[in-house]
């Protein structure tokens, strides 16, 4: 078995264990947060890790885009767009959770709060990244164009976060690990959930890149036998 597959199985198993541990921790071990938002605080254990993970995923796109720019090796293009795809998937999970939370806590489905706005822009931007990819025929051209947007896109994300935070009256941080009310239980549960999300992301990333490489190989083999 190739090293990559072994790593994939290890990460998938790790993620499964940690996710269960995180869920148990979130619902059975950690105390109820009483000072501010009560039960809905439980979302924090999985919501924040989703956000960090999608940030890492778009980071993978940025790094792979730069690597493509330097090496012009198509394998980096695969990494770049798998990163963007996973970023969108984790981002969708994040926003779905967030919208439900917003409804139950603030009574509305959506507010134009800096975080929500930034995330919407990010999702649309990487959605456009895939529109771009689907409209270019040649593999090398597609890689060049999408690498340029992969780089500019990340700069936009950074600027969006800065600009929305400066210009909109930022709502108070609802809950943070620095709160005095955070018990060690809560902290460790959060860390477990965080690593479960990272492990899941790693497993997905390896699986998807492997699938893409194999698809490419099949296409090449078909070409060779004239299929």
């Amino acid at each position: 078995m190739a090293l990559r597959m072994r790593l994939f199985y290890a990460l998938a198993a790790l993620s499964a264990v940690l996710t269960v541990a995180g869920l148990v921790g979130a619902f059975y071990i950690t105390p109820l947060e009483v000072k501010q938002i009560g039960f809905t605080q439980k979302i924090f254990y999985f919501h924040v890790p989703m956000a960090s993970t999608s940030g890492v995923a778009f980071g993978v796109t940025l790094v792979a885009s730069i690597a493509y720019l330097i090496t012009r090796d198509l394998k980096w293009d695969t990494w770049a767009y798998v990163g963007a795809e996973l970023g969108l998937i984790f981002g969708s999970a994040l926003m779905t959770m967030g919208i439900i939370w917003t409804r139950s806590t603030w009574g509305v489905w959506w507010t134009w709060d800096p975080r929500l706005t930034s995330y919407l822009v990010v999702m649309l931007l990487y959605g456009a990244y895939f529109v771009l990819r689907s409209s270019v025929e040649g593999a090398a051209e597609r890689a060049r164009y999408s690498a340029s947007i992969g780089i500019l896109g990340y700069i936009t994300v950074v600027f969006t976060m800065i600009s929305t935070r400066i210009l909109r009256t930022a709502h108070p941080v609802v809950f943070s690990l620095k709160d005095p009310g955070v018990t060690p239980d809560m902290f460790y549960t959060f860390m477990v959930a965080m690593w479960s999300a990272f492990a899941l992301f790693g497993a997905f990333l390896l699986a998807k890149v492997t699938i893409e490489n194999l698809t490419e190989e099949i296409a090449n083999l078909k070409d060779e036998i004239g299929g």
């Binding site: 931007l125 529109v131 409209s135 270019v136 340029s148 896109g153 936009t156 600027f159 600009s163």
Partner: peptide
Amino acid sequence: LAINTKRREQLLPILGFPLLYPVMG
């Protein structure tokens, strides 16, 4: 970038708006 793709004119707003978002505010 858009002129070299098959979607041409459609791509400019789709990519341009989100990239320009940070300065719109």
